[in-house]
Write a protein that binds this DNA or RNA. Sequence first.
DNA 1: GCCGTTTTCGGCCCGACTGTTTTCAGTCG
Length: 584
Amino acid sequence: MKNAQLSATFDQMADIMEILGQDRFRINSYRKVARTIGELPVDVAMLLEEGTLGKMPGIGKSSLAKIQEYLESGKIAAHEALLEKIPTSLLELLEIPGMGPKGVKAFYDKLKITNVDELKKALADGSAATLPGFGEKKAAALQKGIEFLETSAGRIRLDQAADAAHMVIGHLQRLPGIDRVEPAGSLRRRAESIGDVDILVTTGADKKKSGLTPKEIIALFTTAPFVERVLAAGETKGSAIVQTETTPVQVDVRVVPAESFGAALQYFTGSKPHNVRLREIAVKAKLKLNEYGLFRGERLVAGATEEEIYEKLGLDFIAPALREDRGEVEAAANHSLPKLLQQSDVKGDFHMHTLASDGRAEIEEMAEAAQTLGYAFICITDHSESSIIANGQTPKRLARQIEKIHKVDARLRGITVLAGAEVDILADGKLDFDDALLAHLDFAIASIHSGLGSPRAKVTSRTLKAMDNPYITCIGHPTGRLIGQREAMDIDMAAVIEHAAQTQTALEINANPYRLDLKDTHCRMAIDKGVKLAIGTDAHSAAGLGLMPFGVATAARGWATPGDVLNTLTPARLKTFLKTKRPR
DNA sequence: GCCGTTTTCGGCCCGACTGTTTTCAGTCG
């Protein structure tokens, strides 16, 4: 599948065009193509063949021809021509925070600097200072930028971002005269990875008496003990690197007046493409939308709440999870947004481990923890024999574990404990337990834990074959990715989803923030094909059950309604559902 | 390069912060 490479190629063309100072609107359209292709849940070649690719917004004739050219020959002539114009190493300079296309061009034209090492030297020996409009502070900023690039981990996981936000919000809430403190940005949208954390603050109405000025609030943020380095500190906006337990995180804090809170929350929640769509709608209606409100001329039309802004733009309210410019603006305009799944709809958890394999708690502890979360059922799914490092169960041990689960289920009131297993899909697509044993389970997850780097045809056929088994309820973490650590398997998700629909097999949303697998776009595709989703935390302790909201958010980002997700069923309805695939 | 119940040509989102600018360009989100 060439989606990622093709997307990167369009982005690179845009980068080079920026350095060359070409038309910014054309550059924008290249960026849009890159983003569209990068987010596709299926192989771009398949869509091209179907003839649907050219119908996607932002992909016109010219881009379509380039995509076709790339898929046929592995390159794009226009891309090759651009590469001729500058040394490719200039593109790595663009990665440096504080360095933009103009800066790269100036360093190249005037000082013949083509890479990061040469830039470092020029900054050290003072030759950079000979550039017009380039002083000491800019040199220091670039040096910091290079340092940051060389040490930062890049994007962080959702749970790490949530931790950082929790820390900063706690600090800000203790300041005098603070009214509201809310996270915004990709954290509020619950994106699968986060670049930086955005936090919004409003001061109370009595700020003149007892409170602080915006500038003072920013100063108290940037001087907080957890702040490692200040990137900017202005009148209303501060930006700093904050140290958390696991990783440094960039946190931006913005102070806004209460009457603009909704506008600011909307603006800083993004996503950027979503906001651009909204501002375009505003312009067409002779309005102007910015972080202070929706304006007709000088007059404020809306701004205190997000709801009134969407309403005044003629749109239904759009949940943060949907704000990605993936059709939500159109759906809001014609009142066809889905009623999204929420955590309160969830009645149970499908994936967890106990002491029987690599978990750290007894079955009872997991069940009791689930009850405190208000659940009506859980499913115990320990590993199978082949997962040796995870202390996988032999058939004999699984038989004993099933009995044990039944006993706990009989003893506990108010919660149904189902007997399950996470069964390895072996190299040939066979399962790690035979059908006679699987038949004793209520719920069986089939997962690939080995050979993730195998060719597309192999990992795909292994998964399809597992779904053919009548006792397999669900495919676990279907793509095998680990966010920021391991690429997804090269698996044909269109085929997997199609086969899941045919065999009435559910697909898991693994709620662990390392996985979030299925991801949002695949969830949406599965839902469109009528495939049911089963959210599981993959908990290895009672505390691990608390990861469920990450899975719920991922489902919501895939436009899931309560009806699309098995977790919303009562135990009785779930048991009925679990019989549908089995031989009678 | 894309796009069209204002347009097939002429538009294409908006503002904060920084540095070195005496009025603004570059970068970022």
